[in-house]
């Protein structure tokens, strides 16, 4: 537990003076997400791993402020002691993921449709921009409309706008009761069932289809969970392994070559290639997608935008680039994410 804010600020200032690009990294648990094949322009590693610790935690206020090098695993333990958790269920990737990486990547887990995305939970940030200035945006309160929402903008920005030093996150109470059911279903039937659930006020906190099984997690008041479980049927599961395997990409599917993920309007009909359907239909995984536009591995930054099918006239990328320049005019941060020449 240490505050390396001053050292990091100094490191950015020095790099700026030297025109030395910086690659921001925590433990590197997500390095496989960001195109390792891309040549990195002589950048120097700027590590947050020792910038750790919970700065402020107010369980009654449902908010925690954390230094970005803190391991998600450790934060989860701190929150669990107060009966709380991060609603967006970030993947911890072998227990190595950091809070900064979770926010910077914007990756959410199984609870995302019911409990919101990463940026939905971001209330404030302290960051260093490309001018070497330490800035604070947002705060520790749920409602705050003072100034542009720069803190939520950091979720999924992969550090392109600056180095995150601290983030304030909304936390949620752990549910009183939770249970998991597995129903035997084809992809089509499972998808139809998920879409039916989306229209009903069930206490469903996650649902996913994999290998002819529709998994559903019920969370909430005990009576409500039991009542819904009785109505849905299926077989009760005694442990939580499926959900942790899904969240942390520990299931065997995630070790297969060529695995791709795509985001879709959730009601889109399942295709024969879908091997895993989650988020009530909004996120699909496949290892055999025929080079369709939109099927891409995780890839950060502007590249991610170019992978998108349909919509827009390409202007968004221009504004993204201008936004990047507004925070980091000399392209100091994470050049490997923005220099990549990715085919559209």
């Amino acid at each position: 537990m240490a505050d390396l804010g001053e050292e990091l600020l100094q490191a950015v200032a020095t790099a700026r003076d030297q025109g030395q690009p910086l690659s921001i990294a925590g433990t590197g648990s997500k390095s496989f997400l960001t195109r390792p094949e891309t040549a990195v322009r002589d950048s120097r590693l700027l590590s947050t791993v020792e910038h750790t610790g919970v700065v402020d935690y107010r369980p009654d206020e449902l908010v925690v402020t954390v230094r970005t090098g803190t391991l998600l695993r450790e934060l989860a333990q701190t929150l669990a002691r107060e009966g709380q958790m991060l609603g967006f269920e970030p993947p911890e990737f072998r227990g190595l993921g950091t809070v900064g990486g979770a926010v910077a990547s914007g990756l959410a887990g199984p609870g995302r449709p019911a409990r919101g995305s990463v940026r939905d939970a971001v209330l404030g940030v302290q960051m260093i921009n490309g001018l070497g200035e330490r800035l604070v945006f947002g705060g520790q309160v749920m409602k705050n409309v003072a100034g542009f929402d720069v803190s939520r903008l950091q979720a999924g920005a992969y550090g392109m706008l600056g180095l995150l030093l601290e983030v304030s996150l909304k936390v949620l109470p752990r549910p009183q009761a939770e249970l998991t059911l597995r129903l035997e279903k084809s992809a089509t039937d499972a998808h139809a069932e998920m879409r039916r659930w989306a229209r009903l006020p069930h206490p469903i906190s996650a649902a996913a289809w994999l290998e002819e099984g529709l998994w559903v997690r019920l969370s909430g008041a005990e009576a409500a969970v039991n009542q819904t479980a009785a109505a849905l049927g299926g077989e009760h599961q005694t442990d939580n392994d499926f959900w942790s395997g899904l969240k942390d990409h520990g299931l065997p599917l995630f070790r297969r070559d060529g695995l791709c993920c795509r985001h879709l309007p959730p009601a889109s009909a399942p295709s024969a290639e879908d091997e895993l359907i989650e988020w009530l239909g909004a996120r699909r995984w496949s290892t055999s997608a025929p080079g369709a536009v939109g099927y891409q591995p995780f890839a950060a930054g502007f590249a991610r935008h170019r992978c998108r099918d349909g919509g827009g006239d390409g202007k968004i990328a221009d504004y993204q680039a201008r936004l990047k320049a507004a925070f980091d005019p000399d392209s100091l941060f994470n050049p490997e994410l923005t220099d990549a020449d990715v085919p559209a």
């Binding site: 542009f148 939520r152 392109m160 985001h263 909004a282 991610r304 935008h305 827009g312 221009d318 504004y319």
Partner: peptide, 29 residues
């Protein structure tokens, strides 16, 4: 629509944003 006349389609009914979250930025701007 920006003042320069550029039309930006940001997000939609499917999934999370692909890059910088302009949707969050425009809310409250």
């Amino acid at each position: 629509l920006t003042l320069a006349g550029d039309e930006l389609l940001i997000g939609g009914p499917g999934g999370d944003p692909e890059s910088l979250d302009l949707l969050a930025l425009f809310c409250g701007s």
